[in-house]
Design a protein around this nucleic acid. Structure first.
Lengths: 320, 320
DNA sequence: GTGAAAGCGCTAACAA
DNA sequence: TTGTTAGCGCTTTCAC
C-alpha cells in the first residue's frame, strides 16, 4: 500500500487521519493507491496502540427474537452510530454462563463499554471483576451484584395503572405469570400490583402466580391450568410480551373449541402487544418504550465514556 | 501478567493455548496469575498475527426492530455460537450508504465472513470490491450485483399458496402493498401472485399496487386509500409483516369508527403475523421461517470458511 | 520445557 | 513535510 503510493506507512496513516502535514500532492497519491487497492486500515491493529479506542460497544441481551429486545438494540445502535461506534451483539438466552462468556469475549476484544440486560438465571456474576475500568450500563432489569449505572422502565407506574384498571372493573381474582424470583422487572410489576390491590383490601392469591421468563409455550401451559381450575381468575396478567402471547395462544385454542370470547379472563400484558386492540378477546396492554430504553442506556454509557458523568452509579427511569 | 507468574509471555500464551510443552507446575502458576489479575488475552492483538482468524462474523440487517430480522439474527447467532464465533451487528435501515459504511467497518475489523440482508435502496454496491477473499452470504433478498451465495425464502411457493386461497374464495380485485421495485422478495411474491391469478384469467390491477418496504405508518396510509376508493378491493396483500401491521392499524381505526369487520377486505400477510388467528378481522398469514433462514445463512457461510463448499455462488431455498 | 527474537498493522514521538 | 524508531499484545520459529 505505502509502496504503491511511494511513501512510508506513516504518511498513509497521516493522510487517512485527515492529511495534517502532508503535501496535497502526496495526499492525492495516497488516496489514489487506497482506491486502487481497496485498502481498509486494520482497526484491530489501530486499537492496539495505547490511547486509541476500539470503537466497539458490547451489547448483551437475553433474546433477540423478542421484538422488545430487538427494538432495544435498535435504540442502542441509533446512539452508538451517531457516536461512530459499532456493536458487538450477543444473546444470553437467560443463561448466566452464556452471559459470562459473552462478556469475557467482549472485554477481550477491548470494547469501550457494555450494555447488558442481565440474564434471569440466578448466579453470582463473577465476571464483574474482569471489567476493570470498562463502564457498564445495566438495562431493563436490576442486577443486585452489579455496581453500575442502571436504566430501568417505570415498572411500578405501569403496574399501578394496570391495577387501577383492574380494580375499577371489579376484578378480585387475578392470576400472574412471570418470573418474580429472578427477573426484577417482573417482580417489581408483581409487587406494585400487590400493593395497589392491597390498598383496596384485596390480595394476590399465591396459587395464581406462576413463573416463566420468556417462553411462549410455557406461558400457554400455565394459562391452560388457570382456565381449567374450578374457580377461574377473572384476569390473567402477563409480566411481558412473550408471556402474553403464550396466554393468547391458549385462548386461540379455546376459541377453536367453541369457548366464547367473553367467557375468557381478561388478559393484561406488559411491554406492548401489537394489534392488541384488534383481538377478539379482551386484552389490555401496558406498554413500555424499548427503543427509548435502548437510547437512554446508550446515552448513559456515553456520558461515562465522555467523563460527563462521574461518581457513583446512577439510576435512570424511562417513562412508559 | 507474565511477570507475576515469573515466566515469559510465550509460556502464558502456550498455557492458554492448551498447555502443550509446559510443565504442569508452571501451568498452575500461570493459571493462578491469570485468575489473580483477571487477565483476558487481547483478541485484537491475537488476530493480528498472520494465519489467525478474528472470530468475528459481520451481520448487516435492515431493521432490528422488525421481529423477522431479530429472529433471523438469532438464527445466525445460534450457529455462530456453536462455531465459537461472535457477531458484529448493524442495521442499515434500507440505506445503501449505511450498508456500505457498515460493511467497510466490518471488513476493517477483519471479520471472517459477512451475512447481509441487502438494503432496498437501489444503488450500485461499490463495496463488493473491498471484500477481497472474505466470503459473504446474501440472505432473504436478491442482490443482482453481488456474486455471492444466496439463501432465500420460497417466496414463490408462499405466493402461490396465497393466490390459491384467494382464488378459491372468489377474490377478483386484490390490492398489493410492498416494494416491488427494489426488494426482490416483495417482487417475487407479487409476480408469482400475478402469474397464479393470470392462470385463472384474472390480473392484478396496477392501480392497486403501492410501494412500501417496512414502514408501518406508510402502509396504513395506503390501506386508507384502498378503503376509501369507490370500488374497494376484496383483499389487501401485505408483502411483509410490518406492512401487514400497518394495514391492520388502519383497520383498527375503521372499527373504532363503527365500520363492521366483515365489511373490510381480507388481509393476506407474508412472513408471519403473530396472533393472526385471534384478530377480529379476516386475516391470513403466509409464514416464512426467519430463524431457519438465519441458521441456513450461517451454515452456508461456514461451509465456505471451512472450504467444504467451493466453486461458484450457490442458491439455497429455505422452505416456508 | 522454556525463552529470545521477530513481526502482524498501526501511530506517537522524535529526527532529519 | 517526510521518514525512522519503537512498541501496543500476541504467537510462530528457532535456539537452548
Amino acid at each position: 500500500m505505502a509502496r504503491l503510493a511511494g511513501v512510508s506507512p506513516v504518511t498513509v496513516s497521516r493522510t487517512l487521519a485527515g492529511g495534517k502535514n502532508v503535501t496535497p500532492e502526496v495526499q492525492q497519491r495516497v488516496i489514489e493507491a487506497v482506491r486502487q487497492l481497496d485498502y481498509l486500515p486494520n482497526e484491530n491493529a489501530r486499537g492496539l496502540r495505547p490511547g486509541q479506542h476500539s470503537g466497539l460497544i458490547g451489547v448483551a441481551i437475553t433474546n433477540l427474537s423478542n421484538p422488545f429486545y430487538g427494538t432495544f438494540a435498535l435504540g442502542v445502535e441509533e446512539i452508538a452510530h451517531a457516536r461512530g461506534r459499532y456493536i458487538l451483539l450477543g444473546s444470553t438466552g437467560e443463561s448466566a454462563s452464556r452471559e459470562s462468556d459473552l462478556i469475557a469475549n467482549f472485554l477481550s476484544r477491548r470494547v469501550e463499554g457494555l450494555i447488558v440486560i442481565p440474564a434471569g438465571e440466578p448466579a453470582p456474576r463473577r465476571w464483574v471483576r474482569r471489567l476493570g475500568q470498562v463502564p457498564i450500563v445495566v438495562a431493563a432489569r436490576e442486577a443486585a451484584d452489579l455496581d453500575a449505572d442502571r436504566v430501568l422502565m417505570d415498572d411500578a407506574a405501569m403496574a399501578r395503572r394496570a391495577a387501577d384498571d383492574l380494580l375499577a372493573e371489579g376484578h378480585q381474582r387475578v392470576a400472574f405469570i412471570g418470573n418474580i424470583v429472578t427477573v426484577s422487572a417482573h417482580r417489581a410489576r408483581y409487587e406494585e400490583l400487590g400493593r395497589a390491590m392491597g390498598a383496596a383490601g384485596l390480595r394476590m392469591d399465591p396459587r395464581l402466580v406462576r413463573g416463566v421468563t420468556d417462553d411462549v409455550e410455557d406461558a400457554a401451559s400455565h394459562a391452560r391450568d388457570f382456565l381449567d381450575i374450578a374457580h377461574q381468575p377473572t384476569a390473567i396478567i402477563a409480566a411481558n410480551n412473550r408471556i402474553g402471547v403464550g396466554v393468547l395462544r391458549e385462548y386461540a385454542r379455546r376459541l377453536d373449541e367453541g369457548v366464547r370470547a367473553d367467557a375468557l379472563p381478561l388478559v393484561a400484558v406488559f411491554d406492548e402487544l401489537e394489534l392488541g386492540d384488534l383481538l377478539r378477546v379482551r386484552v389490555r396492554a401496558y406498554a413500555s418504550d424499548p427503543r427509548e430504553l435502548g437510547r437512554t442506556a446508550a446515552r448513559t454509557l456515553f456520558e461515562r465514556l465522555d467523563g460527563v458523568a462521574v461518581g457513583g452509579p446512577r439510576r435512570l427511569m424511562v417513562p412508559a
